[in-house]
Amino acid sequence: MHWLFLVFAILSEVIATSSLKAAAGFTRAAPTAIVLIGYLSSYYLLSRALETIPLAIAYSVWSGVGAVCIALIGRFFYHQPVTLSLVAGVALVLAGVLVLQASVGSHPA
């Protein structure tokens, strides 16, 4: 169940972050509301996930998967270019998540 909280925390954070551009510096009401509700929901759901998932794992998955999703949204919705450095950065983020998971998983709580 807590992994489901983490999945929805990631989705909420990605929706909120994606809406930042549309909020235009918080001058547009609807996108601003989406940003605020999205971030509040994301942090609440992340806190629920942390009840059983180790902090290093939950946060690295939350931020890593979120960063990858935002990179994809930037590409497909905002037509931002895919550069070698973007691909390398995404690969490093994913590698970091895997290393943290392996590190935390190898030590008893």
Rank of each mutant, 00 (worst) to 15 (best):
I57E: 11
G38R: 07
S12C: 13
V68Q: 01
V65E: 01
C69R: 02
H79C: 05
S18K: 10
P31G: 08
L6Y: 02
V61D: 03
R48Y: 08
S12V: 09
S85C: 06
F26E: 04
V68E: 02
A56Y: 08
Q101S: 13
S103A: 07
V93K: 07
A91F: 09
L11N: 02
A56T: 13
G96L: 00
S60D: 09
V35Q: 01
L72T: 04
A33H: 01
I37F: 12
I53L: 05
V93L: 02
L98D: 03
I10Y: 10
G74T: 10
F26S: 04
I10F: 10
A91R: 01
E51Y: 00
L94W: 00
A56W: 07
R28L: 15
S18C: 10
S12W: 06
V65C: 01
V35I: 04
S19L: 04
A67Q: 12
I34S: 06
L46T: 00
V65G: 00
Q101R: 12
V93R: 06
R75M: 11
F8V: 06
L45I: 08
I37M: 09
A95K: 00
F26Q: 06
Y59W: 12
C69Y: 01
F5E: 03
S42R: 10
I37R: 03
T32W: 02
Y43T: 12
G74Y: 05
M1L: 08
A109T: 12
V14K: 13
I15T: 15
T27K: 14
V14L: 09
E13M: 03
F76M: 06
L4Q: 05
R75L: 08
F77S: 14
V68F: 13
H2P: 09
S18P: 11
L50P: 04
A102G: 14
Y44T: 07
T27S: 15
G96H: 05
A29L: 15
L100G: 05
P81W: 01
G66L: 00
L45E: 13
P54G: 06
A88P: 05
R48A: 13
P108G: 09
A23H: 08
Q101N: 15
